[in-house]
Design a protein around this nucleic acid. Structure first.
Length: 492
RNA sequence: GGUCGCGUGGCCGAGUGGCUAGGCAGAGGUCUGCAAAACCUUGUACAGCAGUUCGAAUCUGCUCGCGACCUCCA
């Protein structure tokens, strides 16, 4: 590992040099989706962010085990109804589908979106419903250690007792006394509050109401696991009691990740995670895009353009590029303008990459690709600053185009290095790809034929014919670029 | 109310004490049969006020505005 990677650790709120526990192995866990609805733009952010980290770690030579869960157990619908109804159960009742049918439907949908966004599949993708036993075993151990208690068939984590031995709230900067006083009058009356010893306690196991479909036997009741235990149980199973990286959205910092730490420490006595990484949220009109606010746009809708707020469809790679132009710890505001700018910028880089082969190599060079490459590494090493990497790739793009035009000079070796720069960073690490449809090969053949005919017309000075071909092609969204060395084209 | 964060040019978005971020849009030019693309040149900036400093978008304080989390949106 010749590169020194610094990552912002939410635990210390500083950039820390990343060193794995057991090099060259790296264990990484990222909170996955709840599969009771379609994936939206907000989901895209963490999975693209941590996909880039996954790719970069592998590029650096690490052997990464990337675990990302599928939450198919379902949790409370909302508090208003009083009797907490399982989210997945509610959808099932409304649509008369089995809960697992819905989970499967949206798991498949999620996978399809991930593939289109060119996110690599994780090494292990455990389902919560498949790890009930592990969760129960972990709860037993926490009870045995005295950090949890049973109450009316449910099990709660004893935050007060835990905080006497450990610091609860370190990750999210909470103080328990303030937590309780905190929300004050706006505090919602939650089901189960009376069973708790303390309002800050959280559930490890919930006894199922009679109408609750998803239920499993346990030593305490027929019920279902609490809302944080699955990640603790599954990360422990596949990555060990302490592992390197845990990622997720900033909205999960509290209570989800704070509780994960408490559960794992309460179970095993040691901190589970060495580097906590959190991506910021996508905003829409300055507000968080999320299901609870009902202001989200599904990824599928972006791909088809089928949403009132969308002026046009946006390709998956446009979405990915748009996200990578911002740093992952900053909020990123959605707008059609921003996406259209990203679409054009992406096309520019893609065209430059293709233009590398058009450069006529010279014996001397006017470009310094090694320094560009080092700058790209420096940017990645500085907490994955993909926006800066892209700015250097735009500089590379300018060098390529200028070399084609003859104002810069590249040797044959420069051309190879330039191609490698793009292959490594643009495609390999940032995970961009050319979006080709199955028809593209036959289109290429047709275009070559049509452009040859146009070239004949031009050589006969029959500009009426050549312009007609060009204009008609433009109407069909094919852009024609004439140059001294011939004609190139691209899809608009 | 508590905790944390943000406010950069027409738009998006990097950047933490002095040195061009970048992209999109705009203006002028080169090339071209014309066009497109490409290339060259170019304007507009750091919410406000005060302070620290030789020097601040960058540090400190205050003010204004915005957001996230605060028990279940994984």
């Amino acid at each position: 590992m010749t590169q020194q990677l610094f990552l912002t650790n939410s635990l210390t709120r500083t950039k820390e040099l990343f060193t794995p526990l057991n090099p060259p192995h790296v264990g990484m866990y990222v909170c996955g989706p709840t599969v009771y609805g379609p994936a939206h733009l907000g989901h895209g952010r963490p999975y693209i962010t941590f996909d880039v980290l996954f790719r970069y770690l592998q590029h650096l030579g690490y052997k990464v085990r990337y675990v990302r869960n599928i939450t198919d157990v379902g949790h409370l619908e909302d508090e208003v109804e009083g009797i907490g109804e399982d989210r997945i159960q509610k959808r099932a009742r409304l649509e008369k589908l089995e809960p697992m049918e819905i989970a499967k439907l949206f798991t498949d949908e999620f996978h399809r979106c991930m593939r289109l966004l060119n996110n690599l599949p994780p090494s292990i993708e455990p389902q919560a419903s498949g790890h009930i036993i592990e969760q129960i075993e972990m709860i037993k151990k926490i009870i045995a250690n005295g950090f949890a208690y049973e109450s009316n068939g449910s099990v709660y984590f004893d935050v007060i007792k835990y905080s006497q031995a450990h610091d609860y709230g370190k990750l999210s900067g909470r103080i328990i006394d303030e937590l309780i006083a905190g929300a004050g009058n706006e505090r919602r009356e939650l089901e189960g509050q009376l069973e708790k010893h303390h309002p800050a306690d959280f559930a490890l196991w919930k006894k199922a109401q009679p109408n609750h479909i998803m239920r499993w036997p346990s030593p305490w009741s027929e019920g279902f696991p609490g809302w944080h235990i699955e990640c603790s149980a599954m990360s422990r199973k596949y990555l060990g009691e302490t592992f390197d990286i845990h990622g997720g959205g900033m909205d999960l910092l509290f209570p989800h990740h704070e509780s994960e730490i408490a559960q794992s420490k309460g179970c095993c006595g040691k901190p589970p995670v060495r580097y906590w990484l959190h991506n910021n949220l996508i905003t829409i009109n300055g507000q968080k895009m999320g299901r609870s606010l009902n202001n989200f746009i599904n990824l599928e809708q972006f791909f088809t353009g089928n949403h009132p707020l969308l002026q046009q469809p946006y390709a998956p790679m446009t979405i990915r590029f748009y996200m990578l132009q911002a740093h992952y710890r900053s909020t990123l505001d959605f707008s059609n303008e921003a996406l259209q700018a990203a679409e054009k910028a992406l096309a520019k880089l893609m065209n430059s990459y293709k233009a590398i082969s058009q450069v006529k190599p010279t014996s001397s060079s006017s470009v310094d690709i090694a320094s560009l490459q080092q700058k790209c590494y420096d940017a990645m090493n500085d907490d994955l600053n993909t926006a800066i990497v892209l700015s250097h790739l735009f500089e590379a793009s300018r060098l390529i185009n200028s070399s084609v035009a003859g104002t810069e000079k590249m040797t044959a070796r420069d051309m190879e290095e330039m191609k490698k720069l793009f292959d490594d960073f643009f495609f390999g690490i940032l995970g961009m790809k050319e979006e080709k449809t199955a028809d593209d090969n036959s289109v290429e053949g047709l275009m070559n034929l049509i452009l040859a005919i146009r070239q004949e017309a031009k050589s006969k000075k029959d500009f009426a014919a050549s312009d007609r071909i060009r204009d008609e092609l433009v109407k069909l969204n094919f852009e024609i670029k004439d140059s001294k060395d011939g004609v190139t084209w691209c899809k608009m």
